[in-house]
Amino acid sequence: MEYVIFFASAFVAIICALLVISQKNPVASVIYLIMAFVAQAILYIQLSALFVAILQIVVYAGAIMVLFLFVIMLLNLRRDDFGPEKHPLQSWLTRIFGIVLVAELMIMISRGVGQSESMDRAGAEFGNVEQVATTLFTKYVFPFELTSILLIVAIIGAVVLGKRRAEEEEG
């Protein structure tokens, strides 16, 4: 059963990742990216990294991708808005870097993943919600609360710069 879930979600993740770069429509790309993220989240759960999985869905698939979608839809780009054709050198560089990246990955995998001698294995409780919460609400409680002020400032700033005022428009 474990293997079935692993291969299913890995398969979905890879297919979706390929579809992200092969789609012509940016909105469809983003939606495939969301699916890829969700499939990845399932892999995280199998690695018993529950908190990372939830963050993956809430932050990446949820917040960041919705922001992407909004930007793409607001800009309403057409095919010819993307500018002239790319320089041939650019596409060659892309290929070279892609090959280097895959080669690097192969080397890493052949050396064995997560079995480096210099590093200890993370404990079973590492990175679960309880641990994150305990650190967040004990040691880092002040910076954590301070972020709320930062967010308020960001909201006020966005409103100040973004809103329209009748009396000001006349001037």
Binding site: P143, L146, I149
Partner: peptide
């Protein structure tokens, strides 16, 4: 703490 310093600077 450097994190407090960073958040203060961002505010």
């Amino acid at each position: 703490d450097l994190i407090v310093l960073f958040i203060g600077l961002e505010i």
